[in-house]
Simulated assay, not measured.
Amino acid sequence: MSQTTDASNGVKSQIESLLFIAHKPLKLKDFSNLLEQDQGLIKTALDELTTEKRTSGIVLLEGNEGYVLATNSENSTIVKKFFNAELREKLTEATVEVLGIIAYRQPISKAEIEAIRGVNSQYSLRTLLMRGLVEKIPSPSDHRSFLYQTTTEFLMHLGLASVNDLPSFEQLTSEVKLPETPGIDAGTDAELEVSPSSLPPAASSQNENIDVQ
């Protein structure tokens, strides 16, 4: 029994070290290949780690891309405060609006985003892709086109476990306190105020069912 416990603790320790240095989500098969262990054992270790770290400052999250270490959502206020300066320099108001639309309508196409905003959103999408906050996935209806969805990195910035924990649309788009008159480069999207009422029904109804943290 003691040997089994020691082995389990050893695997959990190795998993935690890998997640710390990976800087990207790791899937079950990644751990299995790297540690040369059965996926069943790895899954058990991951589940135990998730439970053990639930009240820690650093928690283990499982997203679409795999497992990742993230800050505890209970500490989201101080984490957001820390990241606010960096994000303020990187994201314009238009980009934050596009991010909000993707978060509540994902997966969503570029054409749908631009239909909601009424302006070209190429610059904002490129910025969000470069920042790792959104990603492109093949469209199930047309493999020649792509849809946009948020990433695990996006959830980490907000200190959330999943998109189901998203705050209200207004709170999300106001998380980054931008200057009242941000400097806009020539290639930046035109600024356009977006509110939940201007979104299609699918976005508004989802927003109404989300608790504000």
Rank of each mutant, 00 (worst) to 15 (best):
T4E: 04
T5Y: 10
D6Q: 12
A7Y: 08
N9I: 08
N9A: 11
G10T: 06
K12I: 06
K12R: 15
Q14L: 13
I15K: 00
E16W: 12
L18T: 00
L19C: 08
I21K: 03
I21F: 01
I21E: 03
P25I: 03
P25G: 05
L26V: 00
K27L: 02
L28D: 02
L28W: 01
D30V: 00
F31A: 00
S32T: 02
S32W: 00
S32L: 00
N33G: 00
N33R: 09
L34E: 08
L35H: 01
Q37K: 12
D38W: 02
Q39I: 11
Q39R: 10
G40E: 04
G40W: 00
E48K: 05
T51E: 14
T55I: 09
S56Q: 10
S56T: 05
G57H: 09
G57F: 13
V59K: 01
V59R: 06
L60S: 04
L60H: 06
N64W: 01
G66R: 03
Y67R: 04
T71G: 15
I78D: 11
V79P: 01
K81P: 06
K81M: 15
F83V: 10
N84F: 09
E86D: 15
L87G: 04
L87T: 07
K90W: 09
L91H: 04
A94V: 01
T95N: 02
E97V: 05
E97W: 06
E97T: 09
V98F: 05
L99A: 14
I101M: 08
I101Q: 03
I102P: 04
I102Y: 03
I108A: 09
K110F: 03
A111C: 02
E112D: 15
I113A: 01
A115P: 01
A115S: 12
I116L: 02
R117Q: 06
N120L: 07
Q122D: 11
Y123D: 08
S124P: 03
T127E: 11
L128F: 08
L129S: 05
M130Y: 04
M130A: 13
R131E: 14
R131H: 09
R131Q: 14
G132A: 06
V134F: 03
S139C: 15
D142H: 07
R144Y: 10
S145E: 12
F146A: 07
F146Q: 09
Y148N: 02
Y148A: 06
Q149I: 07
T150E: 07
T152E: 14
E153C: 05
F154Y: 11
M156R: 10
L158P: 02
S162N: 12
S162M: 03
V163A: 13
N164E: 15
N164L: 13
D165M: 11
L166Y: 02
L166E: 07
P167K: 04
S168C: 10
F169M: 01
E170D: 15
Q171D: 14
L172H: 07
T173N: 12
V176F: 09
P179I: 09
E180K: 14
P182T: 07
G183P: 00
D185N: 10
G187F: 04
T188V: 05
D189M: 09
A190D: 06
L192Q: 10
E193D: 11
S197W: 04
S197R: 11
P201C: 08
Q206H: 11
N207H: 07
N209M: 14
N209E: 14
I210H: 12
I210F: 13
V212E: 15
Q213W: 14
